[in-house]
């Protein structure tokens, strides 16, 4: 009963962390938001399936808490320090547009939630919250050039997918656990920032004569 009562506020907090991410220009602050988001996601299996909690779901929750709440944000923080890109991020989309986009995304998320009714959903906010995270992630990836924002965007997108999976299809074997592969992508992208100082400013490039070209 308590778990059901807590589920709703947790989902609201998830939405708020996404708003924070969309509105913030400080990488450190954004990473803290994803850290909170990871911790909240770790609670989801315990709150959404408190009555039929299995060892598998509990392990998924604890693993998520550790991975998304601590490991990945810490890696990202370290990568930023190493790459010396902790300064404020310039957002090509400005500061007003992301928030307006967030409002639009929230409306779209609710509309999608209505179009895709989920029988026996643990909360009626689950599907909109998941879609909102996915749309926010896509906006962060598409709207902001710096590599760190793109990784954060992908992390948020992934969190949205996980929110849906753990809430809607917890009983389907293996599939939710496979989501770990997405964390592997995040880890590789973080490694790209850390080791090679990629700033994500590569657009479509025209070829040029390249003396060192090998094949």
């Amino acid at each position: 009963m308590l778990a059901e009562l807590l589920l709703h506020p947790v989902l609201v907090l998830l939405v708020l962390t996404n708003l924070k991410l969309l509105g913030s220009s400080q990488p450190g602050s954004c990473i803290r938001a994803t850290r909170w988001q990871g911790c909240l996601l770790g609670l989801l299996p315990f709150l959404a399936h408190s009555e039929d909690l299995t060892w598998r779901l509990a392990a998924a929750g604890l693993g998520t808490l550790a991975l998304k709440g601590f490991v990945l944000p810490s890696l990202l923080s370290r990568a930023l320090r190493d790459a010396d890109t902790t300064r404020e991020v310039e957002t090509p989309a400005g500061y007003i547009w992301p928030l307006l986009a967030a409002m639009g995304a929230w409306g779209l998320a609710f509309w999608l939630g209505e179009q895709l009714p989920l029988a026996h959903a643990p909360s009626n906010l689950l599907v909109p919250a998941a879609f909102f995270a996915i749309l926010s992630g896509l906006f962060l990836i598409a709207g902001q050039k710096p590599a760190v924002s793109q990784v954060l965007g992908f992390l948020v997108l992934e969190n949205g997918v996980f929110t849906f999976g753990i809430g809607a299809v917890p009983e389907t074997p293996v599939v939710v656990e496979l989501g770990v592969l997405l964390d592997l992508f995040v880890a590789v992208l973080v490694m790209g920032i850390a080791r090679f100082h990629i700033h994500g400013e590569s657009g479509r490039r025209e070829p040029d004569p390249w003396p060192g070209l090998k094949d």
Partner: peptide, 8 residues
């Protein structure tokens, strides 16, 4: 990665 996430 985005494609793979959407496919999941």
């Amino acid at each position: 990665a985005v494609g793979i996430a959407l496919a999941l």
